[in-house]
Amino acid sequence: MAGDGLADAAGSFDPLRPALVRVAYRMLGSVADAEDIVQEAFIRWMGADRERVREPEAFLRRTVTRLCLDQLKSARHRRETYIGPWLPEPVFEEEEEGEDVTLPLMLALERLSPLERAAFLLHDVFGLDFGEVAGTIRRTPAASRQLAARARRRVRDARPRYKVDRRRGLELAEAFFAASRSGDMKALGSMLAADISLHADGGGKRPAAAEPVAGFHAVMKLHENLANLFRESGSKLVRAGFVNGLPGFITREADGEIQVTALEVEGGKIAAIYVVRNPEKLGHLY
């Protein structure tokens, strides 16, 4: 009987798991934490009176969102004590999938309160009406609408303004890798916007800039110094693709560890470079 109950719970839950992981990941910015949250939701699903649940997807999305809201309370403290710039765990795809929650938007979501973040994601990204949003976050529809509107204003500049052509994005990522590793500063400079910024997340586990590097000359100087290290120790391209909706690549560095680079492109130029080096954020890519 217990086996039948488990099979029944898994049979109704497993088709929904990928969508639930997407909700949790966008709430938390962590693949591992998202998977843990969804597994906890499955445990609760096993113990629920499933025959009385009319809409399993809505029930489970509500459960996952509420678990994420609880998790964000402790996550906020961890962010405050994090060493250096914090970036979300990268999700890497060989092909761009029309991702509308890009890495810059995920960083903007970090500035929101947990309830603002939930209301915005559930309504603006996942398309739920405010009645369901309200039931999920335990607020009135009017309050949920206000939370989403406030969040929308705060993240407006981080929303994707236009889609980068897939082929052009991959070409730019590969050209950036080649120029930055070979030390071809002329080629590298031709790709960068004047107000470019670089954000590197080492989490205190691997060397990385302690603060974002801003401006064309500062970023060029950093890459000139890095190119000397690359010539001595090497940096191998593992594969190019899309990182949270942005063109980028995975490399294996001289210390044997991998790192992930994502490029924000505006007007044909690289406007921001995001590098995740913290090995604790990269284990799911091996």
Rank of each mutant, 00 (worst) to 15 (best):
F242N: 05
K221S: 14
E232H: 14
G234W: 03
G234I: 05
R239W: 07
R252N: 10
G215I: 09
P212K: 05
P212W: 01
R252L: 10
H217L: 14
F230L: 04
V238W: 04
N228K: 15
H223F: 14
A210L: 15
G248H: 01
E211V: 15
T251N: 13
A214G: 09
K236A: 09
L246A: 00
A218K: 12
N225K: 15
G245R: 04
A209V: 11
V219S: 03
A227K: 06
S235W: 11
N244P: 10
H217P: 07
R239Q: 13
N225Y: 14
P212F: 06
G234C: 05
G215D: 04
K236P: 01
P247V: 05
P247W: 01
G248S: 05
L222V: 10
E253W: 10
L222Y: 12
V243R: 02
E211R: 15
A218W: 04
F216D: 02
T251I: 14
H217Q: 15
R239C: 08
L246E: 02
A254T: 10
V213C: 09
A208K: 07
F216P: 06
F249M: 01
V219R: 04
N225A: 15
A254M: 12
K236I: 08
H217R: 13
N228Y: 13
A227G: 10
F242M: 00
G245S: 03
G215C: 07
S233K: 15
H217N: 14
L222C: 07
F242T: 03
L222E: 06
R252V: 11
L222P: 06
L226H: 02
E224Y: 10
E253T: 10
A210T: 15
R231S: 07
G215F: 10
E232S: 14
N244K: 12
H217S: 14
G241C: 05
V219G: 01
G241L: 04
A254N: 13
V238F: 00
F230N: 06
V213H: 09
F249D: 04
V238H: 00
T251R: 15
G248L: 05
A208E: 11
A254C: 11
G245W: 02
K221V: 09
E211N: 12
